[in-house]
Nucleic acid binder design. Structure first.
Lengths: 348, 348
DNA sequence: AAATATCATTAAATCGATTTAATGATATTT
DNA sequence: AAATATCATTAAATCGATTTAATGATATTT
């Protein structure tokens, strides 16, 4: 069998129409399921359908998008796709989106407002149908203007207090409050909280949960805020300084998985023993925390539920053209996975 | 405050043309840098440029794509975006692509041939300009047909022996050979190799490197191939059985990061001591291996170099319309990060 | 002075679909 | 029998760009 290289120059609707001696309008109606509505003869419908299947014709989606204004693309903006939290979420969102006939264009914002602004404009330019965004601070106006122009937007991981949108979040404040209380109940007294310097809602809420628990128990907070950087050295260095400076600490709470892994590296390099020298808890639960020895207690976000909620809310907005659903916020619960907890009290 | 919904109805090139009393052809020429070539008056060019900047007009990229046949989108197909190796690569490719004016549509193939086939057809349908693919087995014909139709394709992480394409890979065979030799030189004699059952080139090469080293030293290989599954239990269970069965092992080599982390979990649960009971080496180097205690030796892939090579090769293909560059394959070196190596010999 | 070349710009065709408004044929109502 | 309604299909307009071929005006060559 000879394989002819016939640059098949994809068939267009006109080719189909010509070949069947039918108008392209009719073809279009049939392919878009409007045959009944347009009262097109059953036998003609069959003939068209058969031929289309036979030659494997697929409408050019660019042309379709141009005409209809719909692209079937969802723009997904995470903070950093190489962060396991966002990578996992992205993976789940991707699955659900594809299942519903949507493709994903994604990008990492790095929490950089200017970059995010450009990316939003790029997405707009590409006519994405909907936006899923973990928004950095300072992007309020851009998001508002998206919404004002009728674009479906769902925020996740955090929200923008000044913007009324749909968003999916977890109960950050309670999560850290609860975990901190657990440490306190175990007898830990000098509990530090290490986080990235950020005014994002989720970061502030987590910090507040920690503070609340300490205050409620009359304990003194030790807070270290680190400026985020791509360069891990610049994260580890202040962390190192902080831990060396506060020799009296008996527990450390990490506000994000990234701070957590950097923290573990520092603790390793300092030769500190866990939990004898220091008990550890981290936000987000990943292999690193499970396999550290002894394993680190961690707050696990329900990533499946987050991804599900996000995509469900967005698909809803995409399918109901109506404006009369006011924005909804979904707050999900976390799990606190307690590990290797040799009670401080035991040792006293 | 009343929120006016002023659906600004983006300006089109016709609007610009009408407003300036110039033909849209002229506008198009000017905006596409063909003013000189078309000898359009300097003063007119300035007037148009000024107005365009003022109103922030941007050509509708869908219409542009439809006409030109270029979409400025690159399709990226990884095995699983939630795997840290692929997430990191994706992140770097994304950065470089955006810098060069390309967007990324990505998807996870799960090494599923049928799914990949659908995704390729989806990408084609979306008129992506180029493809970056970590291909599953069985997809040879589809890739060939892409290439035959003149689509730029770059494979990475593995290649397809039956298809002549550009691809970027690492020196898999030497990497495992080298690391295995290291173990042997340290005095380990019963070295197991645990991997996913796969005929992909990189997996076969890694396995071969291990076999070569053992054979060269007259040692007996212990190989366990595990069927890949999304469900970690189904990976850990055979691993567990294997380790329990071969009590005489003194070292284990994990063929991928995923096998490695699952392996660590099993080893933890069995209460085995590293490296006293068992020395460990894994392919891919991630936080988990660095922070396990004692840390696990690992083969680090040069992810920046991989991402760089991939995007460079692809951009090259995109920019040179010419066919007369035959396909190139790039093989990169890995680093072997030796950690916590208390020599077996010391204890003897 | 007629024919040709250059200049600066534009009308019309095109990419490939959807959608609106029109059309001719038959069936039904006045 | 004329007027209207229904049926089945289609011509033409449209989305918003790029590109080809054309145009009228001036400058240069025969």
């Amino acid at each position: 069998m000879i394989l002819l290289k016939q640059h098949v120059k994809k068939l267009s609707i006109v080719d189909i129409a010509n070949h069947l001696n039918v108008s392209k309008t009719t073809i279009s109606f049939i392919l878009n399921g409007r045959a009944q509505e347009k009262r097109i003869g059953k036998e003609l419908v069959d003939r068209v359908q058969k031929f289309v299947d036979e030659v494997g014709y697929k409408p050019n989606s660019l042309a379709k998008s141009l005409r209809t204004g719909k692209s079937n693309i969802i723009g997904l903006m995470v903070e950093d796709i190489s962060n396991p939290f966002f990578a996992s979420i992205a993976r789940l969102i991707e699955d659900r989106a594809y299942k519903n006939g949507y493709k994903i264009i994604y990008c990492s914002t790095d929490n950089d407002t200017e970059k995010t602004r450009e990316l939003i404009s790029m997405f707009r330019d590409r006519h994405v149908d909907g936006y899923i965004i973990a928004p950095p601070e300072g992007i309020e106006d851009d998001i508002s203007s998206l919404i004002k122009d009728g674009m479906p937007v769902v925020l996740f991981d955090r929200h923008l207090p000044k913007v009324s949108t749909d968003f999916v979040e977890i109960d950050n404040l309670f999560s850290t409050y609860n975990a901190t209380m657990h440490l306190i109940q175990q007898g830990y007294k000098n509990i530090a909280y290490i986080t990235f310097a950020s005014n994002q809602t989720q970061m502030q809420a987590r910090l507040q949960g920690y503070k609340d628990a300490l205050e409620e128990n009359g304990l003194k907070p030790f807070i270290q805020e680190i400026v985020f950087s791509q360069n891990e050295e610049l994260i580890m260095s202040p962390l190192n300084t902080f831990l060396k400076k506060h020799k009296n600490l008996d527990a450390v709470f990490f506000g994000t998985n990234h701070v957590g892994t950097c923290g573990l590296k520092v603790i390793n390099s300092l030769g500190l023993k866990v939990p004898d020298d220091l008990a550890l808890v981290s936000f987000d639960d990943y292999d690193v925390f499970k396999l550290f020895s002894p394993p680190v207690s961690a707050i696990a976000q329900p990533i499946e539920a987050i991804a599900d909620s996000v995509i469900t809310v967005l698909l809803n907005k995409l399918n109901t053209s109506s404006q009369h659903i006011s924005s909804q916020s979904i707050i999900l619960k976390t799990d606190f996975n307690i590990r290797g907890s040799s009670k401080k009290a035991d040792k006293a």
